[in-house]
Amino acid sequence: MIEIEGLSKLYGRDVFALEDFSMHVGKGEFVFLTGPSGAGKSTLLRILLCQEAPTTGRVIVGGRDITRLKPREVQTYRRTVGFVFQDFKLIPGKTVFENVMFALRILGVPDVQQRRRTFQVLKWVGLQHRANAYPLELSGGEQQRVAIARALVNEPALVLADEPTGNLDPDLALEIMNLFREINSTGTTVLVATHDRELIRHVGHRAVTLDHGRLAIG
């Protein structure tokens, strides 16, 4: 699903966020990306979301080199990727239902289908009863579940998460991780960046460790 080869990202003249980094994530795999703060996890995810261009290297996702996409192709690519961030990134002026439905609306899905799928996915994350609430009326765990619902509503082949449990207490973090496990069990590839080694140990999947922008051995 993801092939990364010789990836480097240089900020300024000599600050390497990533340096000659390579990794492979198979289709339907669940992989943790870990390492201390500043190791380059977020940079890698930003590159995978085409928010940043690498300095050198290739990033192949689903068979396409995403570092060479034109702006219009970036839009199409992003519609196939679900993303979840530590700060949830929900639109405060829209209700939970609207926040989730929004991702379908831009695809031109008919209204009735938009509503049906939004309701289904909200039910799946256990928030159908909060559909009309606004994000700020929800707890952190609930907000993250809304963000997960939005990431899933398009049925993406790949879900990227950047410290999705960073703002949550350990019980809630585990709950969110269980959701990711369920997503993965349907065949969706999941890549989760986290510095929480305890959580990784608990969930128990392959972990790729970054250190100062390089793949850490051992």
Partner: peptide
């Protein structure tokens, strides 16, 4: 930014 991330057309 969220709209851009979900791949909304310009």
């Amino acid at each position: 930014q969220i709209m851009e991330l979900v791949g909304a057309p310009l």
